[in-house]
Design a protein around this nucleic acid. Structure first.
Length: 147
DNA sequence: GCCAACGTTGGC
DNA sequence: GCCAACGTTGGC
């Protein structure tokens, strides 16, 4: 799950009550669909994008499954969607809770150096989905990179 | 700031 | 349903 740290970083998550936060603002159908497949207690990597050192900053857990994203109904929100109604919501979000903040970012550069990760979706050319799946094999490879 | 790679929109 | 124009993402 990607976030721009200037908007919402892993440190911001750490400061939230219960270290939990709804992952709102996703406005891409594919990313939304992936979120809807997430189940309670699923784990995800928290990825920092569009920043000085892009990479994985830590691990989060899904503490609420997908429910309507409130920001789509909020006129004042950047994520407001005039085509969405409470009766017929268009966008959904899960709630995530911080599990672990890494001592060091696992950088995009490091990920790219792993030959075993070359097929990982995140690393594919033109890949820019903000929510995307990680295989269990990829997960264990990345898990071993944590220091 | 640049730009490749997408995704979305809207006229036809 | 096609596709040009436009907007967005995100690494560099």
């Amino acid at each position: 799950m990607k976030s721009e740290p200037s908007t919402f970083s892993i440190d911001d998550l750490a400061k939230r009550p219960n270290q939990s936060e709804p992952w709102d603002g996703v406005r891409n159908y594919q990313a939304r669909n992936f979120m809807r497949t997430m189940q309670l207690n699923d784990l995800a990597f928290f990825y920092h994008s569009s920043c000085e050192v892009p990479g994985i900053a830590g691990i989060v857990k899904i503490t609420k499954t997908a429910q309507p994203d409130k920001t789509q109904f909020d006129l004042k929100s950047d994520y407001y969607d005039p085509k969405a109604t409470p009766e017929n919501p268009r966008w959904f979000c899960v709630e995530v809770k911080l599990v672990k903040k890494f001592d060091h970012i696992i950088t995009l550069e490091t990920l790219r150096k792993q030959a075993t990760l070359k097929d990982m979706r995140l690393l594919q050319r033109g890949s820019r989905l903000s929510v995307m799946p990680v295989t269990s094999n990829e997960w264990s490879i990345i898990d071993k990179l944590i220091k």
